[in-house]
Design a protein around this nucleic acid. Structure first.
Length: 938
RNA sequence: GGGCGGAUAGCUCAGCCGGGAGAGCGCUGCCCUUACAAGGCAGAGGUCACAGGUUCGAGCCCUGUUCCGCCUACCA
């Protein structure tokens, strides 16, 4: 093959685009039910069509792509199903803003035209996020791209709705729900975000109807709702008040009298005054209390959270207050002022409380009385609880299991209707003639259908009313919660309700990768719906990843201005660097605090690999010979053994979703073993032309690098492909090649042990060189000492390599220490540095450094700063002494020697021997250095 | 209010079955040594939050405390 010349630094931009196109053109991402291998499937958490890529997407996508590429290379039949979500409220908001800018509105357009406009918007902008996922290298089967509003998925939604209704698991009724006055729609409980604030607690006097001189004081955080009170509750056992139960109070600012009731659920005697106003139209607890006591419900706010004219009439509010159509916060001020003027306000105090806000637009939500559709959730939740309890679904990290179970066990009915137009319109129709009084046109093109209406729920519009056989219907104007369709995603995308081959092959899916923030919104609901409609779990493993925060640990948000745009990061550092950073930081159960320096560091890693490839390509001229591993030169045996270790470690880490560990093993191997040591060790052999060692080393060089690239591919797909294509290889793309598996013949314990000796010797010489301030280029003469014949043999074999790496020449290798009868004996021959300088004075001119029984002596020149050297030797001597004392004390403890496992005791004894040796050598070196210092002074 | 997680080097975090405190980044010194200065070599830096307990032995296990984060909840 022709050897390609690579540029000096890696430039990701053109590489990434080129290979992504190649992969898609070749159809490598395409899944097929006919493919060999056991299926492995992932459905992507569909991003909103209004979304643009943020780091959360980038993390989520990177992790899934790692899993997908890894399994694909392992020969599994892989499907990664991509798609997007119609995001009802968010998308409608975007298009409505557009209309507003054009001076029109959805109401003026009418429903059909408005929806057409949203589809136009989707056609134009809805694909942006998909393009951005491609930039990340996502190897989804894009030909299967799904959208929650596709006909197929919409059909699944209708099917599920009808079946749930037929089974009595859906109902429509007037309930208090969370209402966003800005989005003008209902929200489910979990779409409300709670924020802790310091509000006010208002104490208001309600005079008794039969004796206005006596009053009952209630406490409330929302004084304006008092106009809608329909009772006051006290605790039935509270002797302060229980004699009043059954009497009435006169409700201030109104012409009404309301009863005093006893309620032990609602009332906490210790809180506030012990008396609670009941406002069933505006508070969830009060709603339930109202049911218990059969109280009327008065709604004093309209859908925009303004004081409602007819509600105020119902409440018989004092018309001079002039509250009609006042927004709620103004109304509060007016009501409080009126109460104060008329002497009803007892006091106001600060009060810590949770305020609910819309998760889409952060507007304060109001409990609002309105007819809505609900899913009866308990029967669906029970099997979903079991599936996780029994381990049919694993949550990873498993710490989230309790969280999940706790939420599931306390789950409340799910409000699924939304008063918007963009989404799956509810497949319920109302006969115009049977429900004449129930259908109200509230404003232009906007209908409200009261809870008295009788729906016909069907897969398609009915032709005739089953009751009166009339043919004129109005369809329920509401659409379903977007999460309702997302809940079906794992099977609706595979063709359900048809029993398609895809569904049979890829369902249940293997793994779901998602953020904690949508565990309840999405994961829990998929489990419920999947079990209900397929009888099987939707996925086996749920990997829950962290949130990406900024370097200070703050949540990234546009308003804080601390967002990091993944696209510009990719532009600046390359996609592989971003992916690797995110994966490397994905430690379980911890949020990711992302600092740009980390990305830069992994960009450097990519460049390091790039340059390793350059080196390899520069050194490939000449024949290669694939000898059995055991017959290759030492550096080859060693690197294959280390590569084998890395292969095992990375596979094991990925198997346990430890992306962080997989990355660090790959990083450690490639940089600190392959580049730092192996490529250096191999240089002498490569320059040896056509020797057998050269031929075998060239082979190992290529072979190990090619395997390492495959090992790295899931994490860094682009650079691994680019370099793989540049070095000798088999096949047309790295991503279709097998993932590395460990090869027993590569393991070489002896080479690893030998390497440790080599590494220690070289490092000692380098440390000495640095201490003695000898320039890196200067060739040194040094002497290596060890403690066993075996080590001596090994060191002699490694001599040329040690000399190459340490830049010098090894004058002698000796066994210089023996310990006889517990006494350390240092060979006088070694102390004398024989062969270097035999004069009595000259023999003392050396620096000796030692670590774990291995020692190196370097001649000290007359120009060397002895003080610095001496300090270092003293420091090291002190450390070995301290450590020896520690272990000595441990061994002197009879409890330790008696109770600890014998192998632990033996290990301590061995370590102590070594430390004594190190200490003796360092101490003698220190003496000599001091003597030298004295000689110089003298 | 309840639950969960965290506290280890200047920063961000690993640390397995309890047995010699690690990495990356940053920092210091030397070096543009023919793969790489986006680099090489060497080095400094730690009372493992605090207090008890279990154990021959605790960063790791148990109890309590403090601080921080998150989730969750109907004290008006």
């Amino acid at each position: 093959m022709s050897v390609r010349q690579l540029e000096k630094t890696y430039d990701p931009t053109q590489v990434e685009e080129r290979w992504y196109r190649f992969w898609t053109e070749k159809g490598y991402f395409r899944a097929s039910v006919d493919r060999q291998g056991s299926p492995y499937s992932i459905v992507i958490p569909p991003p909103n069509i209004t979304g643009s890529l943020h780091l959360g997407h980038a993390l989520n996508t990177a992790l899934q792509d790692i899993l997908i590429r890894w399994h694909r290379m392992q020969g599994r039949n892989v499907l990664w199903m991509p798609g997007t979500d119609h995001a009802g409220i968010a998308t409608q908001n975007v298009v409505e803003r557009q209309l507003m800018a054009e001076g029109t509105s959805r109401e003026r357009l009418g429903r059909d035209k408005f929806i057409a406009r949203v589809w136009e918007w989707k056609a134009q902008y809805g694909g942006i996020i998909v393009q951005q996922l491609k930039r990340l290298g996502a190897s989804c089967d894009w030909e299967r791209l799904r959208f929650t509003m596709d006909e197929g998925l919409s059909r699944a939604v209708r099917e599920v709705f009808v079946r749930l209704y037929q089974e009595g698991l859906l109902y429509r009724g007037e309930r208090l729900i969370n209402w966003c006055r800005r989005c003008v729609t209902a929200l489910s409980d979990i779409e409300v975000e709670h924020e802790e604030i310091t509000g006010k607690l208002y104490h208001i006097r309600y005079p008794l109807a039969d004796d206005p001189t006596v009053h009952l004081t209630v406490a409330t955080t929302r004084p304006e709702t008092m106009l809608g009170d329909t009772a006051v509750a006290v605790h039935p056992d509270d002797s302060r008040y229980n004699h009043l139960i059954g009497k009435k109070v006169k409700l201030p600012l109104t012409a009404r009298e309301i009863p005093i009731v006893g309620d032990l659920i609602l009332v906490d005697r210790k809180f506030g005054t012990g008396a609670v106003k009941i406002t069933p139209g505006h508070d969830f607890n009060d709603f339930e209390a109202g049911e218990r006591h059969n109280l009327p419900r008065i709604a004093i706010l309209n859908q925009h959270a303004q004081m409602d004219g007819s509600g105020l009439l119902d409440a018989q509010a004092d018309p001079t207050l002039n509250l009609t159509l006042k927004p709620v916060h103004q109304a509060r001020a007016l009501v409080v002022e009126a109460l104060r003027e008329r002497g009803f306000l007892e006091k106001v105090e600060d009060h810590k409380m949770a305020l609910g806000k819309c998760y889409r637009c952060k507007t304060v939500v109001e409990p609002y009385l309105s007819p809505q559709w609900f899913v009866k959730i308990k029967p669906l939740a029970e099997p979903a609880i079991k599936a996780v309890e029994e381990g049919r679904i694993r949550l990873i990290p498993e710490g989230w299991v309790n969280n999940y179970l706790g939420w599931m066990r306390n789950i409340r009915d799910w409000c699924i209707s939304r008063q918007i137009w963009w989404g799956h319109q509810i497949p319920a129709w109302y006969c115009r003639s049977c429900n004449e009084d129930a259908i109200l046109e509230t404003s232009q093109n906007t209908f409200t259908i009261t809870s008295d209406a009788k729906p016909v729920v069907a897969r398609a519009a009915p032709a005739h009313c089953p009751d009166c056989s009339a043919g004129e219907f109005i369809r329920d104007p509401d659409v379903l919660d977007t999460w309702f369709s997302s809940a079906l995603w794992p099977f609706s995308t595979l063709g359900w309700p048809e029993q398609t081959p895809e569904l049979k092959t890829y369902y249940p899916t293997s793994t779901l990768v998602t953020g904690l923030d949508i565990l309840f919104f999405w994961v829990a609901r998929m489990i419920m719906m999947g079990l209900k409609f397929t009888g099987e779990v939707p996925f086996r493993d749920v990997y829950i990843h962290a949130l990406v925060r900024d370097a200070e640990g703050q949540k990234m948000s546009k308003s804080k201005g601390n967002v990091m745009d993944p696209l510009s990061v990719m532009e600046k550092y390359g996609t592989d660097a971003l992916r690797f950073t995110l994966a490397a930081m994905a430690s379980p159960g911890r949020d990711i605090k992302l600092a740009e320096e980390r990305i830069e560091g992994y960009r450097n890693f990519a460049n390091k690999i790039w340059n390793a490839a350059r080196f390899i390509l520069m050194n490939l001229d000449g024949p290669r010979e694939a000898a059995p591993p055991a017959e290759r030169p030492f550096p080859d045996r060693w690197i294959l053994s280390r590569l084998n270790y890395a292969i095992r470690a990375v596979n094991e880490a990925l198997d346990q979703y430890r992306f962080d560990q997989a990355c660090s093993h790959a990083y450690q191997f490639i940089w600190h073993e392959y580049c730092d040591w192996y490529l250096e060790l191999v240089k002498p052999a490569l320059q040896a032309g056509d020797s057998p060692d050269a031929r075998r080393t060239r082979q190992t060089l290529v072979e190990s690098f090619e395997v390492a690239l495959r090992l790295l591919h899931p994490m860094m797909p682009f650079i691994s492909e680019e370099l793989w294509q540049a070095v000798p290889h088999e096949g047309e793309s790295i991503l279709t090649r097998p993932y590395p598996q460990s090869i027993p013949a590569w393991d070489c314990e002896a080479a690893e042990v030998a390497f440790t000796l080599l590494e220690r010797s070289v490092t000692l010489v380098r440390t000495g060189r640095s201490l003695l301030s000898y320039p890196p280029g200067k060739s040194l003469e040094f002497h290596v000492g060890c403690t066993s014949d075996h080590d001596m043999g090994t060191l002699k074999d490694l001599k040329p390599l040690i000399e190459h790496l340490a830049r010098g020449s090894v004058k002698h290798i000796d066994k210089i220490i023996s310990s006889e009868g517990g006494k350390i004996v240092i060979s006088p021959k070694f102390l004398g540095m024989h062969g270097m300088d035999m004069t009595p004075e000259g023999s003392q001119q050396s620096l000796r450094l030692t670590v774990e029984g291995l020692t190196v002596s370097i001649v000290v020149g007359s120009e060397v700063d002895l003080q610095k050297v001496l300090e270092q030797v003293v420091k090291r001597r002190g450390e070995s002494e301290k450590e020896a004392q520690r272990i000595d004390a441990k061994l002197a403890n009879a409890d330790f020697t008696g109770k600890a496992p014998p192998e632990v005791v033996a290990e301590h004894e061995q370590r102590l021997r070594t430390l004594h040796q190190d200490h003796a050598l360092l101490a003698s070196s220190e003496q000599q250095l001091r003597a030298m210092a004295r000689m110089r002074q003298g």
